[in-house]
């Protein structure tokens, strides 16, 4: 048997005995999604921080 040949499930990014094995494309896609989520969360935190500075003490006043 050719040792270099990956199991079929691994080539498709499916499950092997060690769990789910991602293909290169799936790993790239997951990394790009993780970076996008991280950037979005940082933007959200910075936005809340700046808006707190902008509002000052009024940040605690919440009229409907």
């Amino acid at each position: 048997m050719d040792d270099n040949k990956k199991p079929e499930s691994q080539e498709r990014g499916g499950q092997s005995n060690g769990g789910i094995v991602l293909t290169e494309a799936q790993q790239r896609a997951r990394r790009s999604r993780s970076v996008a989520i991280a950037v979005s969360l940082i933007v959200l935190v910075v936005l809340f921080y700046i808006m707190t500075l902008v509002k000052g003490p009024a940040v605690l006043v919440r009229p409907l």
Partner: peptide, 12 residues
């Protein structure tokens, strides 16, 4: 559903 996602940021 069992397949890992291949969606890129551009798709979202």
């Amino acid at each position: 559903l069992d397949e890992p996602s291949i969606a890129e940021v551009g798709d979202y």
